[in-house]
């Protein structure tokens, strides 16, 4: 019974989410563009699939991964776990949080890989680039970026350093990299930052941030719990540009070798 009402809640929530989008799309299609949607039946079936898919996806996350992920975030940031069994209570230093950094990095990596929005963008990028940007390559690059971002986010909360230093430093790196990266990848790289942080990543990463801010002395969950998402957004930009630079460099080296042999 409880599960059923949860389903209903999620279904209603998702419909409320999709309704404005559908209204705008079909409103403009009918009143402004005044032409029938090509393959209307197929498109509508697709919408039903998306709606149903989102409901099942969210319901499954809520039932399986989110409770466990939240519980683990709480357990890993618990001072009792960080100090180990039978240790004398003492002031924690930033080196005590090793497992938290590792968990942050792996959580960021694996949730980014499961993010449906990123799958969508990677599919589009492969199509547009005629296959030269692989779905898997792009997604692994982005996931590595999210991993570094989340890990740095946990480090920032533990050390209590101001968020904007990290953001500004990241901006500078992005700008410098932009000057050297292949022009074709830049818009996709900038897009991949915003794409990665949605349905799967945000709740789990937020739980880790808030749990950590509760444990670390002198930090407040409301002030310091934020900021993880911001970092998880910026590092994929760098990672995708690095990925493009590496593939370009490898292609050039292969090319040089081949022409050198002639």
């Amino acid at each position: 019974m409880e599960t059923l009402s949860l389903y209903l809640d999620i279904l209603l929530g998702t419909i409320r989410d999709v309704l404005p989008i559908a209204a705008i799309l079909f409103g403009f299609q009918i009143f402004v563009l005044r032409r029938p949607v090509p393959q209307l039946k197929r498109v509508l079936t697709g919408f039903v699939y998306v709606l149903l898919g989102m409901v099942l996806f969210l319901q499954g996350l809520e039932q399986a991964l989110f409770p466990l992920g939240r519980l683990m975030a709480a357990q890993l940031t618990d001072p009792a776990f960080i100090l180990g069994d039978g240790a004398v209570a003492r002031v924690l230093s930033w080196t005590d949080y090793g497992w938290v950094y590792l968990f942050g990095a792996l959580l960021g990596f694996s949730t980014a890989l499961a993010e449906p929005a990123l799958i969508a963008v990677a599919m589009k990028a492969r199509e547009v680039s005629a296959g030269s940007i692989g779905v898997w390559g792009l997604r692994v690059a982005v996931a590595l970026g999210v991993a570094v971002g989340v890990m740095l986010g946990t480090f920032r909360i533990v050390t209590g350093t101001p968020l904007h230093y990290y953001i500004i430093a990241a901006y500078i790196i992005v700008i410098v990299q932009t000057a050297f990266a292949p022009r074709i990848i830049i818009p996709l790289a900038y897009d991949s930052g915003g794409v990665t942080t949605s349905t799967v990543t945000v709740p789990l990463v937020m739980a880790l941030g808030l749990g950590l801010a509760n444990t670390v002395p002198g930090s407040s969950p409301l002030l310091d719990g934020f900021g993880m998402i911001a970092l998880a957004c910026l590092f994929p930009i760098m990672a995708v540009m690095t990925y493009a630079q590496l593939s370009e460099w490898r292609a050039r080296r292969r090319h040089d070798r081949e022409t050198g042999q002639d």
């Binding site: 699939y49 998306v50 898919g53 319901q59």
Partner: peptide, 16 residues
């Protein structure tokens, strides 16, 4: 459920 949902979603992307 997550598996099934993701699969439907990706199909729906391509169709809708």
């Amino acid at each position: 459920l997550v598996l099934l949902g993701l699969t439907l979603f990706v199909r729906g992307l391509d169709m809708g």
